[in-house]
Amino acid sequence: MTTKMVRILFPLAALALLVLIPLGQGNYIIYVMTSWLMFSIAAMGLNLTLGYAGQISLAQASFMGIGAYITALLTLAGYHWVVGWVAAMGACFGIGLLLGYPALRVQHHFLAFVTLAFNTLVFLVLRNEEWLTGGNHGLVGMPRPSFFGISTGKNLEFYYFVLILFVISAAVFYWIVNSPWGRAFKALRENPVRAESLGVDTRRITLLAFAIGSAFGGGAGAIMSPLVQFIEPGSFALVHSLKILLMVVVGGAGLFYGPMLGAAVVILLPEFLRFTEGYYLMIYAALVIVLMVYSPTGLIGLGTKLWQQIRPQSEVRKDMSKGAQL
C-alpha cells in the first residue's frame, strides 16, 4: 500500500466510521459526538492561525461566541440558519482581520495577551449588553434548521447535518493548506523575514491567517446555537479559548488531523474519566502536563516517535552490517 493510497483511503474509512458509529446510540453519545465535530471545526481554524501560520491566538472561543450569537439572533428573528451561518462566518472573518493588525506589530507572548484581552472584552460585552444578548441569562430556543423539507430537529439528523458541515470545512481547510496560501502560511511560521525577502506579502498573509482561522471559529459557533439551543456568555469565556488551544496542541499543531484528534481527546477523555468523579479534571490536567513534557508535538508527534522507534531497527542493522564489513 503506497502512501498516496493511505492518504485517500484513511479519510474515507474515517468518514464511514463517522457515519456508522452513531447509529443505534443513545442521545447523549450522539450529542457528545456532534459537539466533538463542532469543536473540531473551531480547532481547525486555530490550527491554521497557530499551527500553520505560527500566530498564537487565545481568542478562538470568542469567535465561536460571536458566531453563535449572530446565528441565534438571526434565527430567532425568523431568518433561515444558512443566513446566520454566512453572516457569522463573514463577521468573524472581518473581526479576525482586525484582530490580525496587532499581530503585525507584536509577536509571540504579546500577541497571546492581546488576543486574551480581546476574548475577555467580548465576554464582557456579551454579558453586559442585555438588550441584545440577554446578559447572563443568554438566549434560549434557537430552532434547528430544515433543508428542502428535511428537518434536522432530531439529534441523529442534526449529527449528520453537522457531519456534512464538518466534511465541507475539512475539505476547505485541506484545500487552503495545500494551496500556495498554505505554503505562504508555513513560510511565515518558519521565518517571516526570509518569507518576506522571497516575495511573500507577510502583512497580507498574517491578516488572512487570522481572518480565515476566525471564520472557522464563527462557523463552529453557528453550529453551537442550534445544537445546544441555549447560549450564554460563560460558554465563550477565556477557559474555552484555552480549551481549543489545548485541542490544537494536544493533537499536534500544524498537522491536518491534529486538531480533530485533539478535539476528540479534549471532549471525549473527560467522558471516559467520568467514573473517577471529582478527580477527572486532575487526572486530565496531569496527563496533559506529562504529554507536553514527553512530546511537545502532541499525540501525533508521540505516535510518530513510537513508530520510528519500531521502524529504524532495520536501518540500525544495516549500519551494523556495514561496520562488520569494515
Partner: peptide, 25 residues
C-alpha cells in the same frame, strides 16, 4: 526543565494544565 528546549507554546499549555491541576486539587 524538561520542556526548556521545546519552545514557548508547549510550556504555555503545560502551565495552563498545571493551573487547572492546582485549582482542582
Amino acid at each position: 526543565e524538561p520542556m526548556f528546549r521545546h519552545g514557548t507554546i508547549p510550556l504555555v499549555i503545560a502551565t495552563i494544565a498545571l493551573g487547572i491541576l492546582l485549582k482542582e486539587m
